[in-house]
Simulated scan of single mutants.
Amino acid sequence: MQKNPMMDALFKQAGKQAGVSADQVKQSVNSGDFSNLLRAMKPEDAKRFSQAVNNPELAKQILSSPQAQALLRRFSQGGGSNGGLG
C-alpha cells in the first residue's frame, strides 16, 4: 500500500480526537472494527460515530456539511507543512 500523507494526517487527527494512536485508527479503518476507538471516545462522541458508521445517509449528511467540506478542501490543497491541520 502506498504512503498517502493526506490519509496519514487524517489518521493522526482522528487518533488525537479519540485519544489513540494514528496506527490504531488506521488498523480500525482497515479492519472495520472500531471497538477500540469507541472505548476511547467520550460516550456521546462514540454514539454519534456509531450512528454515522451504521447509517450511510447520516454519514453523507455529515460529510456534506460546510465544516466537513472546508476540512476536505484543506486536506486536498496540502495546507502547509502539517498536512493541512491548521
Rank of each mutant, 00 (worst) to 15 (best):
A9D: 09
F49V: 06
V29D: 03
G80V: 04
F11V: 06
M1L: 10
R74Q: 14
S28T: 04
E44L: 03
A46N: 07
A18I: 04
D45M: 05
E44A: 12
Q17S: 11
P43I: 06
K26W: 01
K3A: 15
Q13I: 10
Q2N: 13
L85A: 08
A9V: 11
G86Y: 08
Q51F: 05
G84T: 09
Q27K: 14
N54H: 12
A22E: 12
D33R: 10
M7Q: 15
L72E: 06
A9H: 03
K47W: 02
Q61P: 00
P5N: 07
Q27D: 10
Q17D: 15
S35Q: 08
G80W: 00
I62N: 02
A70D: 13
G86Q: 14
S31F: 01
F75D: 00
V20M: 05
E57C: 00
A22L: 01
S81L: 12
G84L: 01
A22W: 02
M1Y: 08
S50P: 03
M1H: 10
Q67H: 08
R48N: 11
V25F: 05
V29F: 10
G83V: 00
G32S: 09
Q51N: 09
A59F: 07
D33S: 04
S64I: 00
Q27M: 06
K26S: 13
G32T: 05
M1A: 13
P43K: 12
Q61I: 08
K47N: 11
R74T: 11
N82T: 11
S35P: 02
Q2T: 14
L63Y: 01
G83K: 02
S31Q: 09
A52S: 14
L71Q: 11
Q77G: 08
V25N: 04
D8Y: 10
M6E: 13
Q67S: 12
M6T: 15
K16L: 12
A68V: 07
F34K: 05
Q24K: 10
E57N: 07
L38D: 05
M7H: 06
R73H: 02
Q2K: 14
P43Q: 11
G83Q: 02
S65G: 11
S64K: 08
Q61V: 03
S81V: 03
M6F: 00
K12V: 06
G83D: 07
V29N: 00
L37M: 10
S50C: 04
E57M: 11
G78L: 04
G83H: 00
V29W: 04
R73A: 12
